[in-house]
Design a protein around this nucleic acid. Structure first.
Lengths: 63, 63
DNA sequence: CTATGATGTAAAGTGACCTTGTCTTACCAG
DNA sequence: CTGGTAAGACAAGGTCACTTTACATCATAG
């Protein structure tokens, strides 16, 4: 399960902390997802999609 | 996090066991997701979307 | 140099997710 | 009616996603 989180965040010039606040999770969680330590829960994946205004399939990719 | 799993499965006349086999999880997991006991992991959500040929957003709904 | 912001990593705890096992109900053959 | 099987629910246990807390590195500003 690959994801384009880092790129999308860079496009908006957000820090991990800034994204974490918008998602209402810890900064470390954002970092862990970006570095591929684990996948987000489905509800969090939806919130991520909402924050970026994209579909889940446009952010998370089947590897 | 609401989902249309039961309806989609009924449309195809699949038992919980049949769907579970296609998803490579236990029959109980399918049941638990249908009855709203919990949400599937993101990878499983993708497999569910693949099995039904739909987007995740068409199966799982923000409540 | 000191301070601050951005990112990465680690250890420990909680609860979500998934399993195995058991149960009920319904249906059909004999 | 009885035995067998299929479908769906429920319970208890284990693994891991996710959180918190804490500490470390590097860059840049003052």
């Amino acid at each position: 399960m690959n994801n384009r989180l880092r790129v999308l965040r860079a496009e908006r010039a957000w820090s991990q902390q800034e994204l974490a606040d918008r998602l209402d999770v810890s900064r470390q969680s954002v970092n862990a997802i970006e570095t591929g330590k684990y996948d987000p829960s489905l509800p969090l994946a939806f919130r991520i999609a909402d924050v970026f205004g994209l579909a889940i399939e446009e952010i998370f990719l089947r590897d």
